[in-house]
Design a protein around this nucleic acid. Structure first.
Length: 552
DNA sequence: CACTGATGCGCG
DNA sequence: AAAGCGCGCATCAGTG
């Protein structure tokens, strides 16, 4: 059963119940009611906690972050939803919805990004009206799914995407347990004690003095690349940029302190005291996740940089007293996704254990490091250097896997679109030319940047399907955690962090070992959801730890 | 002054 | 100054 919520212009909320759709018929409204905004939470709670054993409704709403935070704050968890905005983007672009009204529709209000870039409710007393006519949008989406030859896959994709939206809001709501003390201590260790605003920390001042002395440039601003290049050239260090990679190639005594300074500066500006003040409150870091924020369907973040959390500060992620962190990392996820996509039996055999060791055992390359570089090169489209040299050796042993990425690259080079296993479709070069894509995407006037666009589509199928696997993994885990401990409420183990191919569960110590088992089972379940019984494994590295830096 | 693009580096 | 994909963020430097 679907239950659609919609905010009316007067601020009240309309709830409409829809019949279950099927291959032959679209859902239809069977009941409708209007509640005051103040009564919404109770209305949802009542329906969500239905009769024992019955699955709750599937809530249908325009945009999960508009509705769900308030519910969570009131202690109401929602089991399932349809995030119309996210599903709209998927279905509109998907090749497998061809012929539907939604397919290729002109951009409209449903295509406006929400989140930090779009309308927000946080600053206003009155919540904004819903996106226009969510009921009609829901019907368009159901029609597109039901008529698709890939109906089952789109159903799984839209469900997984919507569950991801719930998880993103739930993780922000719970927050990542964060020790400001540990973080401060760690910064003091690396940079010196916290300085007054506007001043450099002591250790960095020493670095700057040293660099200025060695370059004989007493007024040098080390943060200005242009100034720095000039000063380096004057001192006989002939560089054209100030990147670490180029600096490392020079012998001059200034290189070491300069790189040390840059490393510290990076830590200070990205995750220093200012970050701590801005993002950590009451022992919790609450990142703003943006599900499907990248073209491939991976999540992004807006503010806080949670997906770039440097290893250097992970020790500040500390489980609450009496709790543990269960950290699980999918080993060699993307090559395994490629294995499943291509059905390459030789690669499946190599992936029985450590995939890279398996590639070495196959005789394709000599060392694990070579196997890794070659594999990445194959998925990214490397043509030069060590990686480019090694790729052909993989192609001989794993022809099916290589053929799949080669085919994706050729399609892109010719201006075509590719899709993930579940049907997320890549933007066309025309989309990119129209400018509604991130500017750093290669501008593919086909021909000129065709190769570059081919590398994008080559990687899209693998990275995008890996993102789908990760959504299924998290979705399955969320469900099993809730089934096992749901009645414990806030004391139940819960997802607290997600990083593309890695999840962290915050769990009471007595539950941690059992959580570790459920995480592994969820990975296997995700594999079956995508690849059925195909011979591809998704092993994890799981660690039960007190702080995040202790994992791996 | 605000905005934009380039640079550099953190993550997967 | 990366080769070889996808991101976010701070800062600088140039422009309007």
């Amino acid at each position: 059963m679907f239950l659609l919520v919609r905010r009316l212009p007067d601020g009240d909320v309309e709830l409409t119940t829809w019949s279950r759709p099927g291959p032959e018929h679209l859902p239809a409204v069977v009941a409708s009611e209007v509640v005051r905004d103040a009564d919404l939470v109770e209305a949802v709670r009542r329906r969500e906690s239905g009769p024992e054993g019955a699955s709750g409704p599937r809530w249908v709403w325009d945009d999960t972050p508009r509705w769900y935070p308030r519910l969570l704050e009131a202690g109401v968890r929602v089991a399932r939803c349809v995030d119309l905005r996210l599903c709209h983007a998927l279905l509109r672009a998907a090749v497998s919805t061809g012929g539907s009204e939604l397919h290729g529709a002109p951009a409209g209000p449903w295509d406006v990004p929400q989140g930090a870039d779009g309308p927000r409710d946080g600053l206003f007393d009155v919540l904004p009206e819903s996106l226009p006519d969510p009921g009609a949008e829901f019907l368009r989406q159901r029609a597109a799914i039901e008529a698709s030859p890939e109906r089952a896959r789109l159903e799984l994709l839209t469900t997984a995407e919507s569950t991801g939206a719930l998880i993103a809001v739930e993780m922000r709501h719970r927050g990542v347990p964060w020790s400001a003390d540990v973080h401060d201590h760690l910064l003091a260790q690396a940079l010196g004690p916290r300085p007054p605003v506007g001043e450099r920390p002591a250790r960095m001042r020493e670095d700057v003095d040293e660099v200025r002395g060695l370059l004989d440039a007493p007024d040098l601003n080390p943060d200005s690349p242009a100034e720095l290049v000039r000063a380096l050239n004057s001192a006989g260090v002939f560089v054209t940029s100030t990147s670490k990679w180029e600096l490392q190639r020079h012998e001059h005594p200034v290189v070491e302190p300069l790189l040390r300074y840059k490393k510290r500066q990076r830590l200070l500006v990205a995750n220093g005291w200012a970050w701590l003040d801005a993002w950590v409150r009451d022992g919790r870091f609450r990142p703003d996740y943006v599900p499907a924020g990248s073209v491939t369907g991976r999540w992004a973040t807006s503010g806080g940089g949670a997906l770039q959390l440097p290893r250097a500060v992970r020790a500040a992620v500390v489980a609450d007293p009496g709790w543990k962190l269960v950290v699980a990392d999918a080993s060699q996820l993307e090559p395994r996704i490629l294995t499943g996509l291509s059905g390459d039996r030789a690669m499946a055999a190599a992936g029985e254990g450590d995939l890279y060791e398996g590639i070495v055992a196959s005789g394709a390359v000599a060392t694990r490091a070579e196997a890794k570089v070659a594999m990445l090169g194959a998925m990214y489209g490397a043509t030069q250097g060590e990686s480019g040299r090694l790729v052909p050796r993989l192609a001989r042993r794993f022809p099916q896997a290589m053929a799949l990425v080669e085919e994706a690259a050729r399609t892109g080079e010719q201006g075509g679109v590719v899709r993930t296993l579940l049907g997320r479709t890549s933007p066309s070069p025309a989309d990119a030319a129209r400018g509604d894509l991130p500017p750093e995407m290669p501008r593919a006037e086909v021909g000129r940047d065709a190769r570059s666009w081919g590398r994008f589509t080559r990687n899209f199928v693998v990275q995008g399907t890996a993102a789908e696997w990760a959504l299924c993994w998290m979705g399955a885990l969320r469900q099993s955690l809730h089934r096992r401990w749901g009645e414990r409420g806030d004391d139940a183990p819960h997802l607290t962090f997600f990083l593309h191919d890695e999840v962290v569960v915050h769990a009471p110590a007595d539950a941690a070992d059992e959580v570790a088992v459920l995480v592994v089972e969820a990975a296997a379940a995700a594999g079956r959801m995508l690849f059925g019984d195909a011979p591809v494994r998704f092993p994890l590295t799981v660690a039960v730890v007190d702080d995040y830096s202790q994992a791996k």
